[in-house]
Structures are given as structure tokens and as C-alpha cells.
Amino acid sequence: MIQVKVHTILNLKKILGRGDIDLTMKEGSTVKDVLMTMVETYGDSLTDQLFDSEGGLLPYIRLMVNGRDIVFLEKKMETALQEGDEVLILPPVGGG
């Protein structure tokens, strides 16, 4: 088993009730596995924020592993996580 940290903000944080969550996952678990685990735990309110009606990740949800956007990781959602990795799940943001 491995320990993975999940960090999120704003409306997603509200749904989770906190910004940081520690997950214990099987060895070889992926980013997608983390999302599935969280959806199982937090139910439809989280699912609606992350996925479209066909189960695809909403295009404006930004996922990062240790700060690197998964778009630039070779296996993207299938990226295998390591002990201590931090997964960021970021809702759309603007301003600044």
C-alpha cells in the first residue's frame, strides 16, 4: 500500500469538507484510481463537479501530480503514483 495526498480548493474543498486528504491506495494505483476512490467516498456531489454525463473528466478540471499537469505526463490519468505523491485537483479559477 502507498500513502497519497490529495489537495484541492474552493468549491471542491467545500464538498470534501477540507482541502487536504490522505489516501491509502494499492501499489500501482493511478490518478484515475484516486479520483474513483474519492467519488466513491463523496458521492454525486463530487462526481457532478468532476465528470460529464458520459463519465468523461470535465475539460476545465486541472489535475496535477507533484505540481506537474497530467497533460504533460506520458500516461496522463493512468500515471502510476508513488509513495508520498501529491495529487492536485483544481476547479476552474480566474481573476488575478
Binding site: M64, L90, G95
Partner: peptide
């Protein structure tokens, strides 16, 4: 149709970027 303009940005304004930029370090 903006995913962020209403209601999030309208209610909170620019300070939400503190949370976003802190998250990405």
C-alpha cells in the same frame, strides 16, 4: 457559459486566486 464567472467569480472576486496560486506553489 463561463464555468467560473458566475457565480464563483461574481461572489468572491480576484482573491480566490490566493487559493489557486498557493495550490500550485
Amino acid at each position: 457559459e463561463s464555468e467560473v464567472l458566475y457565480p464563483v467569480f461574481a461572489n468572491t472576486g480576484t482573491p480566490m486566486v490566493v487559493d489557486a496560486t498557493s495550490a500550485i506553489g
